[in-house]
Design a protein around this nucleic acid. Structure first.
Lengths: 411, 411
DNA sequence: GACATATATTTAGATTCTAAATTTATGCCC
DNA sequence: GGGCATAAATTTAGAATCTAAATATATGTC
């Protein structure tokens, strides 16, 4: 009974560190965190890192070994050794594995990583386009996962969590936004399927957001906590980070630029891909010299895609280079607008355009400096086409690190 | 000595909850948090809210009373009382006070609030413009603070923290960005002055960011965690929140829109104020009927300000109403661009324009719906000209809540 | 005045921590 | 090989804190 009306029952349970057991748990988490960030450590290292007493540190380490998170190594030979040899502990990066999956429109890529993020296996499968039935696409995904696991010499049961990236907005609770019909084609029930088939927790996220996580983790954005990553291929999307926190927005659509037509000289929402196609088509029609671009278009037979233009430019095609120059100028406008709201320290360009960075960067940086007195740094991603998949791995790893002591490591 | 090279000494000390004392501290914080969010509570209430045992709860309450954060009330008479009367505890909202200060260009406003955020005192002083010397402006600030404290019947020594809002970017460590010369005029050493004079910790923040905090706390944005607040008067600035977290950007400039000239039909960075002035001047020159607007301009004698236009519109001036309609349309474009990057659930319009909301909202909402398939809600602030000062109070309260058990309550 | 009831307080036992004393394993020196 | 120095592990004793159960206390009811 609460005298004044409001019922607070159980409302703050999660805040409470009640029992002594919770204290031990906190110390386990702290020591595990230290171990994840260092290589093999001794008890003395942990005493210095955490401030805990020796007896406590050793007891916690024994608990962690018991739980399966930590291995004890044979005592190391050190150059100058005096005194009793120290016990040596190490975070067991193979206590399990995580998988990262990029579910694109044309293909799907799976990565398997250990708990330190070392990539152990990889596989890519073609999805057969949007028109393929859901069941077939789910089977393809399973196939890619199976191959990647085999490549990593791991079993399905070793997987602790799976991270999945898709080219649609995903809100904080992992639901795909259906505010545009187009995005429905990505909602084929991957989450339920993988949970039912293998018992994995599955985390869904937007591809541009995962790209930002990947850059922040191991790309040019390492150590940069206010970061924007532009994923540009057929479409453009931003992954935005402030203070190291990814932005989601009310329905997962933050960074999903759908309104570029309001920006002078950018045009339609799909501005950049459209520009590439239009300029390429015009150049071909005008009878420009037989370019690599035209050759590519001929070969593919399906018309010119933005990716084809980027690829041709990378191979030295002149028309494509001109197109990329124009694209760089347009991108500068989009980046400028984004940067005026977000104030990032660094903007990373990723996705298919990244391959043509040498041509793209100069106009982009020059124009950006014209628009802004203090423009952010602009760099090109070096993660290639693994950018989203690596982000999916990072998403899964974050989950493991956060919930480690709740997870069951099985055998 | 770490076997593998990296030195982790002390690196994770803050993570560790080592001793039993830390456990008690965590429980004190949890119980204090419950008390802050409810009125008077009994031990039984706290048991239900936290899951702790009765003996623990009572012991913690006694500790909190000892520390000065909690008061014990006389046992309450309840309609149906059976058994031994419960001891009644209450968070002592007068364990101290906080002050919030809005340091504007023309005037400064100070609020004094208790620890539940109830406003106890208020004072406003004119600053005498930008040209006044720093020392004089500091004296004016002290005067306003003194008056507000007297109004609240509080002493300088009762103040636990001061929050200060200024119309310049402030980075995470509280430094004013000097990327534009203009902003230097706000850097008059308030922080150092108040610390040295009264020993208060002083927290500096950008005014638009504080407006967002205020709306999230007690405005139309209550309960909305993905929120944008547009503070529009002479200048425009956004305070942006994602997942309840305020965005700062790399140098505190997030939401400081300085690039509206790239947006079709918005024009210069100071677009909106300039538009108001230009249209008003044109109307006056053309010899429009003697409007309230013109009268206001005559009275002020300093030319027409954006604020004057908003005020005139609120009083029924027709020309000003037309101007506001145009402004609403322009704002729609700015909001649309912001929303496509941020995906807020709600956009709140605050600042001087808010007074003219009845005229402004319709064109703003209509145009916004034209630009976006799923536009955010748009509402007008009801906090009036206290919006920034209330945010400064909230900033100070957040600090008190976070550091409560580290603060010395003095006597 | 006995009884029911809800709460406070006390007591006993468990867990976990720290700090100090003790033991153990290693290298070095004679 | 035996003693010594050293660094670490382990054991021990003591303190803080928690829980759960037993006991005491204050109130209303019959």
């Amino acid at each position: 009974m609460c005298i004044t009306g409001q019922d607070v029952k159980g409302q703050f349970l999660e805040l409470t560190a009640n029992s002594s057991q919770r204290l031990r748990r906190t110390n386990m988490e702290a020591i595990l965190a230290v171990m994840r960030r260092s290589d093999a450590v001794t008890g003395t290292d942990l005493i210095e890192a955490t401030g805990l007493a020796r007896a406590t540190v050793i007891a916690v380490c024994d608990d962690l070994i018991q739980a399966g998170w930590v291995r004890e190594l044979a005592p190391q030979k050190v150059t100058v050794q005096k005194g009793r040899p120290a016990r040596v502990f190490e975070f067991d990066a193979r206590a399990g594995v995580v998988v990262g999956l990029d579910f694109g429109s044309e293909k799907t890529t799976a990565l398997v990583a250990d708990l330190r993020g070392n990539i152990l296996g990889k596989a890519t499968e073609s999805l057969g386009g949007f028109t393929a039935p859901d069941a077939q696409r789910l089977a393809t995904i399973e196939k890619a996962l199976g191959k990647a696991l085999a490549d990593a010499d791991a079993r399905h049961a070793d997987v602790l969590v799976a991270g999945v990236g898709i080219a649609a907005p995903v809100d904080r609770s992992g639901n795909i936004s259906h505010s545009q019909l187009f995005w429905e084609s990505f909602d084929i029930g991957i989450q339920e399927n993988l949970r039912d088939r293998f018992g994995w927790p599955v985390l869904l996220a937007n591809d541009a957001n995962l790209a930002a996580m990947a850059e922040h983790w191991m790309g040019v954005g390492r150590g940069v906590n206010d970061l924007a990553v532009m994923l540009a291929g057929e479409r453009i999307g931003f992954g935005l980070m402030d203070s190291g926190q990814l932005l989601h927005g009310a329905s997962g659509r933050s960074g999903e630029v759908g309104l570029l037509d309001l920006v002078d000289g950018v045009g339609t929402p799909e501005g950049i891909a459209a520009l590439a196609r239009d300029m390429a088509a015009a150049a071909c029609k005008k009878g420009s010299p037989a370019t690599v671009l035209a050759t590519l278009a001929d070969i593919s037979g399906v018309g010119i895609t933005a990716e084809a233009v980027f690829a041709a430019a990378a191979q030295g095609d002149l028309v494509s280079a001109q197109i990329l120059d124009a694209i760089g100028r347009r991108m500068a406008r989009v980046v400028a607008i984004m940067a005026t709201f977000m104030d990032p320290e660094l903007v990373v360009i990723g996705g298919a355009v990244a391959a043509s960075s040498s041509i793209l960067l100069t106009p982009l940086r020059t124009e950006l400096a014209r628009y802004m007195p203090n423009p952010p740094r602009v760099e090109v991603s070096t993660l290639g086409d693994a950018i989203v998949t690596l982000g999916a791995v990072r998403l899964a790893l974050d989950y493991v690190e956060k919930h480690a002591l709740n997870l069951d490591l099985g055998d």
